[in-house]
Design a protein around this nucleic acid. Sequence first.
DNA 1: TTCGGCGATGTGATCGATAACATGTGCCGG
DNA 2: CCGGCACATGTTATCGATCACATCGCCGAA
Lengths: 329, 329
Amino acid sequence: MTDVARLAGVSHQTVSRVLNGHPNVREQTRNRVRAAISELGYRPNRAAKALVTGRSQVLGVVAQNSTLYGPASLLVAFENAAAEAGFTVSVGNVSVLDRHSIGRAVEQHLDQRVAGIVVIAPVASANEALDHLPADVPLVTIDGDPARPAALVTVDQAAGAREATKFLLAAGHSTVWHVSGPSDWFDAIGRIEGWRAALTEAGAEIPPVMAADWTAASGYRAGQMLARMPDVTAVFAANDHLALGILRAMSERGRRVPEDVSVVGFDDVPEAAYFIPPLTTIRPDFEAVARTTLGMLLGQIESGSSTSTRHTIAPELVVRDSVAGPGQR
Amino acid sequence: MTDVARLAGVSHQTVSRVLNGHPNVREQTRNRVRAAISELGYRPNRAAKALVTGRSQVLGVVAQNSTLYGPASLLVAFENAAAEAGFTVSVGNVSVLDRHSIGRAVEQHLDQRVAGIVVIAPVASANEALDHLPADVPLVTIDGDPARPAALVTVDQAAGAREATKFLLAAGHSTVWHVSGPSDWFDAIGRIEGWRAALTEAGAEIPPVMAADWTAASGYRAGQMLARMPDVTAVFAANDHLALGILRAMSERGRRVPEDVSVVGFDDVPEAAYFIPPLTTIRPDFEAVARTTLGMLLGQIESGSSTSTRHTIAPELVVRDSVAGPGQR
DNA sequence: TTCGGCGATGTGATCGATAACATGTGCCGG
DNA sequence: CCGGCACATGTTATCGATCACATCGCCGAA
């Protein structure tokens, strides 16, 4: 930086002003400095800037280390959004979302002087950790507890589940079964709620929830039970991989989809259109979630105050071939 | 740090020595300093350290922004391995792997004074960029060009493809068709080579390569063509999602898998066991790739010299139900 | 005419760590 | 009994930026 200043015939402070777009610099001076910068191939040292300002141009993300489609897509979408805004993303993967792990990951980020932190906290166990975090750092939660008063962005799980269920009911089914995600996930809870609400509104009978985790394996197991109950004609699976397992179980027991049983999933994984049959599902807009999260975070960073705004992103129904009326049998 | 020094009754330099495990500190002094540190809840400022040493405890990863299973798993595995070694990972996502984008991402990482960089460079277009990178920074490439003399870790694509093809031949098929990935991906090229080698060794006829991208959609299109050729009895798909599309195309045209047509995939995505039928596939060991990469990177960081070692990780055949002999029809 | 004020720029202190060198002990061998 | 050396520790400079404040013209209003 000193070299640049010398070449441009100004002080290091003026170079700093040009770099940071400070208004009070003469056009001519600004140009001289710019020329010197590009001639020397000068690149500012972020570490020095971080040291003096106490903040870096890095955003920290704490996420459960997983290749689950939802969280992974969210992460990628957020990385993109952040890159566009000129931020780098530092990922603090964590194997369990408990208080200790999250706390450690957050502190590690604070050591690096990140400008803000995003916690992808889809499970109940993350709550306690979030309650004990320092309040003065910009922080936004994705998929966290809707009941917590904190800055939060989520997909509207209940609305999506409701739409899926209503779509099945509208096709003529008298009720809809549900294979749910793990009960400690807010996503799973929200989807159960939406499903139940749609059934209640329609005055339909509410079958017991079939608990599963998010894997195709557990969907398959649930599907094996559903397949042997002849009165089951419609199933709403809490995600597409569960649906995949269900499709296979149905196929093995000779129950055709959608002629005998209709199935709707959630997530719209890229392969969903190529399941047998192509899966009708709910598509959450991960990019919108990422953009919104980034916006809130940047807002907090600029204002210096942490808000408790809540944003909910409505998902969208994608109709394919896995739903038909019960009469088709 | 000054506060800690005062409380412990020593100089800040001694505190620094304790922090960095310097040997020449008396046991008793060391304990006093440790006590002061924990009493004050002191946490060192990484930015300051990075400023003075010129290196941070951060590793940069440049990857194509995608939710493709392979790259995404690799990234997660690497983040875990790095976290275990006490490093944070900063991800520089890039939408296209061309010279300009990679260059920019790398420079951004250098601005942050990362300790080392990993480039996940599975396509040919990344080569040019890699040739023009500064040579003095520790850098390891994953899935890069096997022909480039650089530090590189890859899955042994050819060996996996060969194993898959041999398995199909061993089941009694006279030849094996191949639906490949995009021709600018080294992974795709390696898999084609392995497939071709296995056919050549067995003296089997070599059918034309069916070009596709990695998506289920393109697998479906290829599958539609394969399904109408009655002499096609065995297909090796370059990844599991392609295989999924093929399975659906076969199912639509009434060709049963595995009775009429056998299919093998590549990747072993978690859902592969729940395709219809469960997919026989090749499982690459992403964790081994990540561990090896990290090891090489740390080696370079410590030694200060950049090596050109190459490591290849052999994948493994996972047998399920999508392969049978041609006689079964 | 004069002085307040603002715009453009420079000067020195500062962030929090490490590096290089200096200092002060105590022990050993000659 | 003393020089010298290893060990423990302290002092000061340094990394590369920003911040707070000082300075210097210059313009317009009293």
